[in-house]
Amino acid sequence: MIDRALSSLFKVVAEEAASNPAFGKKLEDTLAKFGQELTEKRMAERSIENFHPLVEYRKDAAGFEARLAKFDVKELRALVDRHHLDPAVTLKGKGTKKILAAHILEAAKKRAERDAKLFEY
């Protein structure tokens, strides 16, 4: 049922885009913008895939900040999302590179301290 409904809907949109250049252009722009944002998001996710901030901090706390500095804003944001480093949503998905890096550093430090206590449970 849903497949037929969607086919009908897309057929209407496709016909309108072909016969109405203004609508077609608007559609192209929207798709291009969405595509670009999605590509950037995926690229950021891929580049942080093997970097676990909490693990990396435990390995080398002193060099952690320098390693964080190699990431751009999108990558830092992806790190925060992936590892749930902003549970109270204080960053609201925003923040400069400096703010994000400081936030991740603080979160990793606190987590390492908490986990060290857990080992003494």
Partner: peptide, 14 residues
């Protein structure tokens, strides 16, 4: 599940 991926990496470390 990104939480699972993140926690699994942490478990492996600890």
């Amino acid at each position: 599940n990104t939480l699972h991926a993140s926690e699994a990496a942490m478990l492996k470390e600890q």
